[in-house]
Amino acid sequence: MRSSLVALVLLAALPAATLADGLDRAVGKALFDRIWVQAPSSTAANDGLGPLFNEKSCASCHSGKALSAKITPLPDGTLAQRGLVTRLADPQGVPDPVYGRQIQPRAVSGLTSEGTVTYALPDEPGGPLAVVFAPSRGDLAAATRLGPRQAPSLRGIGLIETVDEAAILANAAAPKPDGVSGRPRLLEIDGQSVVGRFGWKASAATLDQVTSDAFRLDIGMSSPLAPFPHGDCTAAQPDCLAAPDGRSPEFDGEEISSEMIRLLNAYLAGLAAPAPVEPAPLGAALFASTGCAACHVPSLKARDGGTVAIYSDLLLHDMGAGLDDGVGEPGVASSEWRTAPLASLTFRTGDGRRFLHDGRAGTIDEAIRAHGGEATAAKTRYEALAAADRAALIAYLETL
């Protein structure tokens, strides 16, 4: 009783804005952890899952300290994983006519899933994952390619939205060494051109869009920004399109309301990146001298006039044939990738955490050596370092 009274006194002493933020994040965390169920159900606030889906909750894909994918090699070379999905498209970004943008290997009761997917480690370090898809709804189109994508770290994701768009564009226009270029991905939203900054291909400009797309593709649920109650189902899947949905007037006519998206993003935006540490002089110097900082820019200007330390320029770069999986997006080549922020790298070491877009690299060293294209010169300098200097550079990266 006494502890409860103390808690109430402390809550009453908090500013109203602080208290509201805390409550919003707590509700957002509950939404992040919620296990969604198929419609119709007795609790309308929980239904709408599928009909086809990858997981039943956000937390299923984003787990551990980094809130990212967990990928564990098994003795036979295959991977036990949560948070690894397979995108589908041709090099121009055209989705598969039957399976859509992503393979959903799970389905609600009474419906057939799209099949099973098995992942295996590459034969050579730095090579692509082996993906075996056993389809249950007919063959893929001849031009369709399979692109594994691991759920990224959510630690510090809110920082990305605070970067000033003008700073991204200015950095894109600035001259760079070693043949590095980098370009912004421009998206049309409400008739305006804005810079994409989230996702492996910079496919979203806002955290709202990121969350809405994840609900649609991974969980199969609609929201005002992604009003598709049957998720990624296509016209070639009439049974999926005919399945019941969980749309409700209480949720803006969709399965997930704008308010639910806002609360969930309040939680995501509050996920802290690591506290800054004083960098080891040698590691920080090597990060710059090898050329890593040309793309993994330590900080960018923030909208409020400060700086944001995310270690990314948020631009697209051609990373060469080695990282080209053949899966493009409209206006983005299959070999182009947005520079991955390194701000939460310290949370992504060990415990089934892997690196690069498909998790092919088991260590930071393997990830660097897999770089190509515009990053070739930086990789070459890294490989030419003495072993002690490479270790110092990696130790520095592990503090980010």
Results as ranks from 00 to 15, higher is better:
H371L: 14
S193R: 07
A214V: 08
T118M: 04
L300S: 04
P276V: 12
R353Y: 12
A361T: 06
P148M: 10
S193N: 05
F355N: 03
A343W: 01
K201M: 10
G127Y: 09
Y382G: 05
A321I: 13
L207W: 02
I219S: 01
D239G: 14
G322T: 09
K70H: 12
A141K: 04
A66Y: 02
S258A: 14
A172P: 02
R185H: 14
A151G: 06
S335T: 09
A202H: 05
D24Q: 14
S258K: 09
S289V: 10
A80Q: 15
A391W: 00
G359N: 10
G93I: 00
I219D: 02
R34P: 01
E124D: 08
L169G: 06
A166E: 10
P298V: 14
E114S: 06
A273V: 12
R145W: 09
D21F: 00
I160A: 08
A16T: 13
I189W: 00
I160N: 02
L5Y: 04
T339D: 08
A266C: 06
V210P: 01
R25G: 11
I35A: 13
T399S: 15
M260V: 01
V163W: 03
A395G: 14
L225K: 10
T399Q: 12
I261H: 03
A141M: 08
A59H: 09
A309E: 13
H62V: 09
K29T: 00
G191T: 12
P105Q: 14
H230K: 04
D351I: 02
A39N: 07
P279Y: 03
I368P: 01
A387I: 07
D324G: 08
L49H: 05
A134D: 09
L300V: 10
G350Y: 04
V27M: 13
L31H: 03
T380E: 15
S203W: 06
D213E: 15
L11N: 08
P148N: 07
V194I: 07
L140Y: 03
L342N: 03
L10G: 00
L31V: 03
P40C: 12
D76T: 04
F228C: 00
R87Y: 12
D178S: 11
F53G: 08
G306A: 14
G352V: 05
L397I: 07
G158D: 01
D239W: 08
A321Q: 12
R145I: 04
A384P: 04
R155Q: 10
G179A: 07
A69K: 01
G373I: 12
R87E: 15
A143Y: 03
H357N: 08
L67C: 05
V85E: 02
A384L: 11
G126D: 10
S153C: 04
G362C: 05
G182S: 06
A16K: 15
V9C: 09
A30V: 00
S57T: 03
D190F: 02
T112G: 12
T78M: 10
R338L: 14
S68P: 06
A275F: 09
S257A: 11
R338V: 05
L397D: 01
P51F: 11
T307N: 04
G331L: 06
K301R: 08
